[in-house]
């Protein structure tokens, strides 16, 4: 397996140094609104990882085997959105049928994910960075894990925030943003790993 180190590097880069949330700012809306409890953050994080990896693979095939041969790259955005919405619907039905437990754990988050820009963003980065199929899978999985890591960590930090007393105007979103900034600073430190 000569390719495995590069694939590992892609996963690590996507999850840590180039974290989709802390370095590329994708998926901020749900990141801010669903990070008040660790359990919620976990559920949403898993759902995002799942859907992100799935849709990026489907989008890879759609882009390279349908849009490029037909010369329809400019329709990429609208097709990707349709694929994502379709995938989410399909995944929801699939999970409901085969694993009701998982369905109740993820259920409420799945519709939310359709409008999570991390999902569409990852697919767009897949096209811009010209990944091969294996690299695409690694990138999608790594991005999802990175998102999960970031939101769970923030949920933990926000729990602690409950005991502190920031100045009035900073309460709520403002202090969370600054907190995220400090977290992003810490994640940049992973850049020194040299992967």
């Amino acid at each position: 397996m000569p390719e495995s180190p590069t694939l590992l590097a892609i996963i690590l880069t996507a999850a840590l140094t180039n974290n989709i949330l802390l370095a590329k700012f994708l998926g901020m809306c749900s990141f801010l609104s669903c990070s008040k409890q660790i359990s919620t953050a976990f559920g949403l994080g898993f759902a995002v990882t799942f859907v992100l990896t799935g849709t990026i693979i489907v989008n890879y095939f759609v882009y390279h085997y349908l849009l490029v041969p037909l010369g329809l790259q400019h329709l990429m955005l609208i097709i990707f959105i349709a694929v994502i919405a379709g995938c989410v619907q399909f995944v929801e039905m699939f999970i409901e049928r085969f694993s009701p437990t998982l369905y109740y754990a993820l259920g409420i988050f799945l519709p939310l994910i359709t409008v999570n820009c991390a999902i569409l963003g990852a697919s767009l980065f897949m096209v811009i960075d010209e990944y091969s199929l294996l690299e695409t899978i690694a990138f999608g999985f790594g991005s999802g894990i990175g998102w999960l890591l970031a939101i769970v960590l923030l949920a933990g930090l926000r729990k602690r925030m409950g005991y502190s007393d920031p100045p009035g105007p900073f309460r709520g979103v403002a202090i969370t943003m600054i907190l995220t900034g400090i977290m992003a600073l810490a994640f940049m430190g992973f850049g020194g790993m040299g992967v």
């Binding site: 802390l22 370095a23 700012f25 900073f170 979103v173 403002a174 202090i175 969370t176 943003m177 600054i178 995220t180 900034g181 400090i182 992003a184 600073l185 940049m188």
Partner: peptide, 11 residues
Amino acid sequence: LAPGAFVVMGF
């Protein structure tokens, strides 16, 4: 870099 964006937005 990214952290600056978060901090400016927070303020």
